[in-house]
């Protein structure tokens, strides 16, 4: 079951707790998602991710199947990086194991072959080994405009559907 959350113009901490009713009967089951929506993602701590949203859209015939991003450690301690949330059907991510204090490292997302002809909005979550075990989520979006595609206006937003 995929839970999709639109952060819109929310700020600060958010929790959502959808309930699942089944023929098992009460009590209902639930899942919970938590996040902290930031207004200035270019000034987070202890890392700053640039770009903070990854748009891997393809407009034209030239295949666009990967994108780099930078993780800057703005603290005075080295930080280990790990991926704790990844849309594995769509992308792979290459990430250095750690980022030294005051330095930057580069990450790379690559589309899986089956995802090349798909439009989607997913996200990638990275966890640090700082005392808070801080997490940062990077939205990953792909739109497609292939030559001869006249079925959609250029400014029409990508439609997302819960598929699971």
């Amino acid at each position: 079951m995929e839970i999709i959350f639109d952060t819109k113009h929310y700020t600060d901490k958010m929790s959502k707790r959808p309930t699942i009713q089944t023929n098992e009967g009460p009590p209902d089951k639930y899942v919970q998602i938590d996040c902290e929506v930031v207004r200035r993602p270019d000034s987070t701590y202890p890392i700053i991710i640039k770009p903070y949203k990854l748009d891997i859209s393809q407009f034209g015939e030239k295949v666009r199947d990967q994108m780099k991003f930078t993780i800057m450690n703005v603290s005075d301690k080295p930080l280990a990086l790990s991926t704790v949330g990844l849309p594995t059907d769509y992308i792979t991510v290459t990430l250095p194991a750690s980022v030294p204090a005051g330095k930057s490292v580069e990450g790379l997302i690559k589309l899986k072959p089956d995802a090349l002809k798909k439009e989607f909005e997913k996200s990638l979550t990275i966890q640090l080994d700082d005392e808070k075990a801080s997490r940062f989520t990077i939205p990953v979006k792909r739109s497609l405009r292939l030559p001869g595609d006249t079925t959609r206006a250029a400014n029409e937003p990508v439609k997302t559907v819960d598929t699971k």
């Binding site: 952060t7 819109k8 639930y30 899942v31 938590d34 996040c35 993602p41 949330g85």
Partner: peptide, 20 residues
Amino acid sequence: TTFNFGYVPQNSKISHVFWL
């Protein structure tokens, strides 16, 4: 049953898959 996204930017769609 729970997933923490941590810091997320505004105006974004984020997602997580829970297995049942």
